[in-house]
Design a protein around this nucleic acid. Structure first.
Length: 110
DNA sequence: CTTTTGACTACGG
DNA sequence: TCCGTAGCCAAAA
């Protein structure tokens, strides 16, 4: 499985109503320090079943300007699953995904 | 081969 | 809290 595939697999494991940071996704995909790669993969992905909106920066902010179309879109999709967005940011203490080790190990390598 | 380029992050001031 | 800076590293130029 190549790197983009691993990243996509991890993103698809993020539960509805939860979020993860770029760096967190990279780590879980076995690619430490590759947060920027996660961004690149999401940018290029066209998979409509990919919950890309659940991936945020390390501090909980959306990676787009609040007024941008992409930003509005991401906010809307987050709101749609009950995630509150204030000032282009979500409360990570409340929404950040905290997968158990087994949760990852069991579902990842297919 | 060197430089630029990022849906990033950590650290200061 | 809000910037600038430095570090990051694979891809593309």
């Amino acid at each position: 499985m190549d790197k983009p595939q691993k990243i996509i697999s991890v993103v698809k494991l993020i539960p509805k109503g939860s979020v993860a940071s770029y760096g967190q996704v990279a780590d879980l995909a076995g690619l430490p320090r590759r947060a920027r790669l996660v961004g690149k993969v999401l940018r290029e992905a066209d998979d409509s079943s990919l919950p890309w909106h659940r991936v945020l920066r390390a501090n909980g902010t959306i990676a787009f300007e609040a007024q941008s179309e992409q930003g509005q879109h991401q906010t809307a999709r987050l709101n749609q699953e009950g995630i509150v967005v204030v000032s282009n940011k979500v409360d990570l203490k409340k929404y950040q995904w905290q997968p158990s080790l087994t949760e990852i190990l069991l579902q990842l390598n297919y």
